[in-house]
Simulated scan of single mutants.
Amino acid sequence: MAPGVLTTSSLLTIIITTSVTPSAPSTELLSLVLESFRRHCPLLLNCRVIIVFDNYDRVTPTARLKKGCVTSEQAADYVLYKQNVKELFLRQYYQDSENVVFSQIEAKAEYGSPGDAQNVVNLIALQSHDKKVTFIEPARRLGFGLAVRSALRMTETPYTWVHQHDWVLLSDFPIDPLLEIMRASELDEEAPIKYVCLPAIRMLSYAVSDAVMRFPALRELTSSLKRDLSPASQPDIKVPLTPLFFWHDKPHIASTAHYLARIFPTGLAIPRGDFIEDTLGQRARTQMKEGLWTKWACWLYYPDEGKQLCLRHLNGRAWPGSEREAEKIARLRQQPEE
């Protein structure tokens, strides 16, 4: 590679958020994520990665993971899970994974009113000597929104791929051409490309769905902006995009600076424990319907006119892992028929 040439790894950081799941301490969920990268977008494995281990709020007799409540068994499993995940990623990124040198960084995640000293979560980040791998562990639960912001603040690349731990890629994704297209659009006042979401099952045929067609302004924008784009260095490659009128949490690529400016302008933007799409995502859609789409500049990757699926959701809050699932099925088969 010639000096000064921008590569995917110099442009993009991967942020992966994870938390307590029924499948812990197994790393099967994240192993499936990495395998899907390897199969469908191997360049991602050359990029720096930041893994955020979100915490829980309390130990209770019954788990309510979305509310930050875990059982004592899950809390113990999570300690093992974090260590297992660290080993998984170090093996992925380093040949001599046992001798990687880390620096420790202390940080804070503030939220809510700045006048309340309680509205701060302390963070410890372990970062490898070459910054390829960073692990962030908060002292309290952050929620997806603040977990992403904490990682973005440590991101040094102009673009970020945000990935929750229970989504896997199902089809090839043109990350290199897309990044070149995004960079070329930075000065485009009419159609900047600041955020690109990958399509999941409910987003198929999005451009002709009710989410678009019921609103004249969104129909008009889609008609004028939906297009196939080609990077200057690879004119034969076509990257199909259509305007997206929402900011989704599911896997996406975004400008790092745009992310921080639009989603996290102040500590009041995202409450602790919340998802981005449940708060700012709704506000973004409202503003887009009012004519402010370029403020958010959201797009959807749209292969085969929106008929090609790119993501599968594994539902990490419910999935126990293949081993425990097999054990459950075996127990059910052993039960006598009534």
Rank of each mutant, 00 (worst) to 15 (best):
T155I: 02
E73W: 05
A117L: 14
Q95L: 08
C69A: 10
P251M: 02
W299H: 07
R140C: 08
A184K: 06
L187F: 13
F53W: 10
S171N: 07
T155N: 07
E186I: 08
R91M: 08
T160S: 06
I263H: 11
A109W: 09
W161S: 00
K295N: 15
T155W: 03
E338L: 09
L170P: 01
V162W: 04
S26Y: 13
G321P: 09
K307M: 02
L11K: 13
L311S: 01
K86T: 12
L229H: 07
G306Q: 01
R312I: 01
L332W: 12
E98R: 13
R64K: 14
S10V: 07
R153L: 13
G112L: 10
A330H: 10
T18C: 13
I136E: 13
H313M: 01
G112E: 11
A107Q: 15
A151N: 05
D96G: 03
N84C: 09
L241V: 04
H163G: 00
D236R: 00
V120S: 15
K132N: 03
D172W: 07
S233M: 01
F37W: 11
T256F: 07
P61A: 06
D116E: 13
W296H: 15
S26K: 12
A232E: 09
A2E: 12
A191K: 05
R333Y: 04
L332K: 14
A326L: 07
S23V: 14
K131I: 00
S9G: 08
S205T: 00
Q83D: 11
S185P: 02
C47R: 05
L218Y: 08
W293Y: 06
V133M: 08
H129E: 14
C310N: 01
E290G: 12
Y302M: 00
W167G: 00
S31I: 03
W296N: 12
K250G: 00
G281I: 04
H248W: 12
R183W: 03
F102T: 10
S103W: 14
G115V: 08
V85W: 11
Q92W: 10
A232L: 06
Y259H: 14
Q92A: 07
D278E: 10
D57Y: 07
D166Y: 03
L280V: 15
E106I: 15
D54M: 08
R324I: 07
T134H: 04
